[in-house]
Amino acid sequence: MKDMVRIFATAAAIATIGVGAAFAQEKPKVAFVPQIVGIPYFNAMEAGGKKAAADLGVDFIYSGPVDGNPVDQLQIVQNLIDQGVNALAVSVLDASAIAPVAEAAKAKGVKLFTSDSDAPDSGRLVYVAQATDEGLGDAIIDELVKRVGEDAKIGIVSGEATASNLNAWIGFMQKRAAARYPKLKLLEPQYAGSTAQRAAQVSSDLMAANPDLKGLIAVASSTCPGVAQAIETAGKIGQITATGYCSPNTARAYLKSGAFGFTVLWDPSQLGYLTVWAGKQLIDGKAFEASNTIPGMTSPATYDAATGILLLGPPAIFTAENVDKYDF
């Protein structure tokens, strides 16, 4: 009896697997592993990747960890390598994480590269970048200074403290502020994990601690709604200008209410498209040009052979005026 029930339970589990199983095809496979599934940003990248896959005649696999856990991400990457995908792009959660699997990928002939978040010393073949980390850090500080002035106190609310790409952006923000705007005071970054509620709590506490706060930067896209909501709830619209790396759909209501002055982001679906295109190039053994004009993309992508970075282009600035032109 006991055996029967247990076996039924597993049979049910396996049946569920079967439903999701895809049948093997002969087309080359390009996989992309995001940092976390279930957030609009990576969903847009998935959509762009799918479109590119259809255009370029490859199979596209999208799989990532449920809660941004680096070991889970590693396990997913390892499995995709074992499964024998031809090219594999990873948005790295932790730059040192990728080292053990990079060797395995090389041995198996899998073209391993990074996209969206880099691991520079891992031996990856190319990094498909939305913008340079420096460019992103600079853009947000420059644009914010335009709105709140140079003599201002700015708070930073990030997501997981372990996210290496977010920490790199914060580093460049601090560098930019120190080099260009000596009067600008950036507060120590605070980390809110991945829930909007914690982001709102931390933001409201920051505002209480610094009544003269002029700006707030939401570094992780998961913190955008929380930061904006805290400003609206505290009734400090106009007094505090928030910004962040937030997609137009997430920030639209807050840009219009004035809680957000602007947000900085690239088009993640274009980044997804470029990622799959880069994977196809690697599989075909084609080199990247200094400037690559790609059908299906709005602007050419530049390639820097020295750093191995394939660049999508400068980030876009979204404001209340232009936000309705975008849908991602």
Binding site: R6, T16, G20, V37, G38, S63, D72, N79, L80
Partner: peptide, 23 residues
């Protein structure tokens, strides 16, 4: 591993393990 290999959405892992535990 098996679910990953079959490219089943990872969120099912969480759900299936939960159901398995209760079952």
């Amino acid at each position: 591993t098996g679910l990953l290999r079959l490219n089943v959405n990872t969120v099912w892992q969480v759900g299936i393990v939960g159901i398995l535990l209760i079952a």
